[in-house]
Computed example of a mutant assay.
Amino acid sequence: MTRKRMLTLNDGLKRLLFALPIPFLLGFVWFYIPASTHYHIEETYSFQSTEKDAQVRLAIMLPKSGPYQDIDSLAVSWEGDETRESHGSVDVVKFTGHIEAGHKKVATVAYDIAMCQGRVRWEAPIEDFQLQPQEGIESDHPLIVETASQIAETPDRDNAYQIFRFASTHISSWKGEASINGSNPDARVQSALKSYQTRNGVCGHFANLMTALCRAAGIPAQSISGWSIPDYPPLWSTTAGPWQHPVGTHGWVEFCTSGYWEMADPSAAFRMPVKSVWFGRNDGGHLCYGERSFIEAVSKKMKSWAKTDGKIVGGMTGPYRFMAGTDANGVSIRPEAMLKVVWDGRWFNSFILIVLMLVAWYCPGLWRKLKQSKLVKAQHGPSFRHR
């Protein structure tokens, strides 16, 4: 083999060895280096009446600031009456007004979201229900109790992690919402026990199973309802069509050990080879509305208010969270949403890593060439032009 070919092979091997760790380094920077994410959300709800004048009601649920999120700059636009109510972890904005036949009436809510990426811990009181059975969280069932005792001997963080790992691997996730509504219409009300027995479920079922096992092991826990915001690049703006939303409905768990609360996402860990990424950490895209059963109760109150002296013309419990009602026929509502990524420190950290890798790759070669050039000049001395 010629010397030139040997040098070519050596260069190729060096490039391969240099490139191999790049995906792992990018993953480490993305998930483990602290960063912040900032978003702007704008939701528009358009009423239209085709037959006659009507009175309309609209209730919209909005998230509040919490341990791993800040909600700011709330702006509301509506030609009519507006009231705001606080319901624990969420706010509810209520609109009432009159719409003429053949006309439209539009309500708009906009706000900014700031979230952190990295480990999150906070102190909060423990409620009785966070250690007791609930609908869909059968922490007192013998099968759940026996499994919890086999996984966790004491209610500490290490055993909470073992429960998290079990929940993330025991269930085989379905592929999308279509299979939930189509092949198994009971999926939306599937309990932790059924998830354990069938080994099927989506994010909320992973969360219910982990919550039930934690409570059975004496670890306070609650199943959370919220959003999962996709990893759009910075300054990206996207508008969803009617009844669509740029974010997705999601469920995860909050648990408490040694006096501190943390979050865990067993359904996300199902897809990850390194499961610890989703234990005790926020990825900068989990927006919390609150404990699942509490949010469901608030939604029922919104529905009851919206259909006062009339009927419901539209509503969703995720990712839009609203209820709309009217006292007349021929009234419809159309929700639309816009999401803008104002800043995402995860992308910035990744960019810095790539720049450093390029510097590490090219600088040694440039330094060698510069050094060789200086040696050549030193050997031959200064050059003179003779006439």
Rank of each mutant, 00 (worst) to 15 (best):
residue 15 R to N: 07
residue 330 G to A: 05
residue 248 G to T: 15
residue 105 K to N: 01
residue 281 R to M: 03
residue 120 V to I: 14
residue 84 R to M: 08
residue 298 V to K: 06
residue 346 R to H: 01
residue 132 Q to V: 00
residue 100 E to C: 10
residue 372 Q to C: 05
residue 253 V to T: 14
residue 264 A to P: 02
residue 215 R to C: 00
residue 115 M to L: 14
residue 236 W to D: 14
residue 50 T to D: 08
residue 276 S to R: 04
residue 288 C to N: 14
residue 307 K to A: 00
residue 128 D to P: 11
residue 230 P to I: 07
residue 287 L to H: 11
residue 96 T to M: 09
residue 199 R to L: 03
residue 92 V to T: 00
residue 314 G to A: 06
residue 263 M to G: 03
residue 178 A to H: 11
residue 2 T to P: 15
residue 154 T to D: 01
residue 79 E to I: 06
residue 186 D to C: 11
residue 382 P to A: 10
residue 243 W to M: 15
residue 17 L to F: 06
residue 314 G to V: 02
residue 360 A to W: 08
residue 141 H to R: 03
residue 337 A to G: 01
residue 88 G to Q: 04
residue 385 R to I: 11
residue 161 Y to R: 13
residue 376 V to D: 04
residue 155 P to G: 04
residue 82 E to V: 02
residue 363 C to K: 10
residue 379 Q to S: 13
residue 230 P to S: 13
residue 194 K to C: 12
residue 306 A to H: 09
residue 64 K to S: 12
residue 297 A to V: 13
residue 292 R to Y: 15
residue 67 P to N: 04
residue 361 W to R: 05
residue 17 L to Q: 01
residue 358 L to H: 03
residue 372 Q to H: 10
residue 62 L to D: 07
residue 217 A to P: 04
residue 272 M to G: 06
residue 284 G to V: 09
residue 170 H to R: 09
residue 111 Y to W: 13
residue 9 L to P: 02
residue 114 A to M: 12
residue 325 G to Y: 02
residue 124 A to Y: 05
residue 233 P to C: 09
residue 34 P to V: 04
residue 318 G to I: 04
residue 359 V to N: 04
residue 135 E to R: 15
residue 102 G to Q: 09
residue 352 I to P: 00
residue 83 T to K: 00
residue 16 L to N: 04
residue 48 Q to K: 15
residue 93 V to E: 07
residue 158 D to P: 01
residue 36 S to Q: 03
residue 18 F to H: 09
residue 356 L to Y: 02
residue 219 I to N: 07
residue 174 W to C: 08
residue 18 F to E: 05
residue 277 V to P: 05
residue 34 P to H: 04
residue 116 C to F: 14
residue 41 I to C: 10
residue 87 H to Q: 07
residue 8 T to G: 12
residue 315 G to K: 10
residue 117 Q to R: 08
residue 249 T to V: 15
residue 283 D to E: 05
residue 202 V to A: 13
residue 334 R to F: 04
residue 357 M to F: 10
residue 200 N to W: 02
residue 270 F to A: 15
residue 191 S to K: 02
residue 367 W to S: 01
residue 95 F to M: 11
residue 62 L to Y: 07
residue 267 S to C: 12
residue 347 W to G: 11
residue 189 V to H: 11
residue 71 I to P: 04
residue 130 Q to F: 14
residue 68 Y to T: 02
residue 151 I to W: 02
residue 218 G to A: 05
residue 223 S to I: 11
residue 84 R to H: 00
residue 181 N to F: 15
residue 35 A to M: 08
residue 33 I to V: 14
residue 87 H to F: 14
residue 288 C to D: 12
residue 245 H to R: 09
residue 254 E to N: 01
residue 184 N to H: 14
residue 387 R to C: 00
residue 160 A to Y: 02
residue 366 L to D: 00
residue 45 Y to C: 04
residue 354 I to Y: 00
residue 52 K to P: 06
residue 179 S to R: 11
residue 202 V to S: 10
residue 378 A to E: 13
residue 380 H to F: 14
residue 194 K to T: 11
residue 37 T to P: 02
residue 281 R to F: 00
